[in-house]
C-alpha cells in the first residue's frame, strides 16, 4: 500500500469503515517501516460509532434464526446454550424469535457460566463473580449451539466448551455470535453464525446494548478512553 494523500484523509473522515482501516494502516507503518502517518484518525476514533441500530438489529436476529432453521432439521436434537453473563440476552432473543418462526419449541434451552473454566483465574486482581448456570438436560449426542454477544479473543468460548463437556459428549458444537471481532483472536476458534463482522482495534470496545437491560437494542464501538455511556 502506498502513502495516501490528503484526499484519502477526507475519505477517512467520511466513512467509519475507512477510518478503521486507516488506523490499522498507521499501526502497521509504525511497527514495520517507522513511517509516521498523520494522527488524523484519532478525531474519528473517539466518537462512539453505532454499528447496529435497533432496526438493523431485528433484521440480523431474524437472519441468524433462519440460518439456524436451515441447518438444524426440526431442532429435535438441538440445544441452544447462552453464555453468561451477556450472551444470555442474545440466546433469549434467538429462542423467542425461533419460537415465533417455527411455532413450537422442539429444542432445549440452557445457560452456561464459564467462570470456573477460565484460563485467567489467579491472573486478575479481582476474581470474576460467576452467574447462574442452568442446563437441565444432558448434551450427550446433541447438536449444541453456543450463543454469545461479542466474539473477541476466543478465550471465553474455549472455557465455555470445557464447561459444556461436563454435561456429556455432544455430537456437534456450533457457535453463534452477534458481533465477530475478527482481528483479535488469541485461539484458533471460529464462529459458525455471525450477526456482523467488525474490524475494531484493540483500544476500542464493542458494546452491545439490549432493550431489556439498557433500554434499546444497539451495538456501539467506543474508544477505551471514552467516558462510559
Amino acid at each position: 500500500m502506498q502513502n495516501p494523500g490528503p484526499a484519502s484523509f477526507c475519505a477517512a473522515l467520511l466513512s467509519d469503515a475507512v477510518a478503521v482501516r486507516w488506523y490499522a494502516l498507521r499501526l502497521m507503518c509504525l511497527r514495520e517501516h517507522a513511517v509516521f502517518l498523520p494522527r488524523l484518525t484519532f478525531v474519528v476514533m473517539v466518537e462512539p460509532r453505532v454499528i447496529l441500530d435497533s432496526q438493523k438489529f431485528g433484521l440480523v436476529l431474524e437472519r441468524l434464526c433462519h440460518q439456524l432453521i436451515e441447518n438444524h432439521d426440526g431442532f429435535g436434537d438441538t440445544c441452544l446454550i447462552g453464555i453468561q453473563p451477556r450472551g444470555i440476552h442474545l440466546s433469549r432473543r434467538i429462542d423467542q424469535t425461533l419460537l415465533r418462526l417455527t411455532g413450537e419449541r422442539t429444542w432445549q434451552y440452557g445457560v452456561l457460566d464459564p467462570t470456573f473454566y477460565r484460563d485467567d483465574f489467579r491472573r486478575r486482581d479481582m476474581p470474576l463473580k460467576p452467574a447462574e448456570t442452568r442446563i437441565d438436560f444432558l448434551v450427550e449426542g446433541k447438536d449444541v449451539v453456543l450463543i454469545d454477544d461479542v466474539f473477541y479473543t476466543g478465550r471465553t468460548i474455549r472455557a465455555a466448551m470445557d464447561g459444556l463437556l461436563h454435561y456429556g459428549r455432544p455430537a456437534r458444537v456450533e457457535l453463534l455470535v452477534l458481533i465477530d471481532r475478527r482481528l483479535s483472536r488469541h485461539l484458533p476458534v471460529q464462529p459458525d453464525y455471525v450477526g456482523q463482522t467488525v474490524d475494531a482495534v484493540i483500544s476500542e470496545q464493542v458494546r452491545v446494548e439490549w432493550a431489556e437491560a439498557e433500554g434499546q437494542d444497539k451495538v456501539w464501538i467506543v474508544s477505551q478512553n471514552a467516558p462510559s455511556v
Partner: peptide
C-alpha cells in the same frame, strides 16, 4: 489480560 473490560463482568474478592 486483554483490555476488553466489559462493564457487566462483576468482580469481587474476599
Amino acid at each position: 489480560m486483554s483490555p476488553q473490560s466489559t462493564p457487566s463482568l462483576e468482580k469481587s474478592a474476599l
